[in-house]
Amino acid sequence: MVHIVTDPPSETGGAAQQLLRLQNDFHARLAVETMHYLRGLQSALGPAAPGTVLVPRRGATLRATAEPGTQVRLHVEVANAQAVHCVVSPALSPLVAASGVTWFAAANVDPPYLLIAPGETEAAALDIAVPAALPTGDYRGVLLMHGAPDGVPVTIRVASTPAKKAVATKRPAKASAAVRKTPGTARKATARRPGGTTS
């Protein structure tokens, strides 16, 4: 690369260029801010979609205990106090232990899509297969639902001894669950869940 050096700008020329650059910057910034303002105005004046808020009645925290290689089941029940149908589709976040293990639990939600008529109550079950190779510990995550921004805290205690609260049923763990040890590589996750929306 060849650099061609010209005479340094005079004091007057430098000031003029700087003024021009400042003006250009100002106009560019003004255009961006104007667009942001107009789009904000468009949003503020645009139509809203009335939403649904899920208020917990019972069970502010979901807790379960299970052995590796078993299956644990959680329940969610929603009563529709609105004047029209509402939809709820629960989904579980990844579960994390204090030891640094992240458990991608691949919960099977049945049914995955709750359509609830006004005044009716519907329930869904979340079946979570606990991998046989999952290290013991308390795994914490959140049950997420649209309308419950903070979700419901979930704690699953994986213990090697027989669980006293026998919510778990003996079943071989599916190959669908993935466990990730931080740092390290994740095990294979292959199975899919039937249709539904995870929000």
Binding site: R57, G59, A60, L62, R73, H75, V76
Partner: peptide, 15 residues
């Protein structure tokens, strides 16, 4: 507790 119960309400800050 392995069960959670919710009520679907209208947004108090919305319509």
């Amino acid at each position: 507790m392995t069960a959670a119960e919710f009520t679907a309400n209208d947004d108090p800050n919305g319509h």
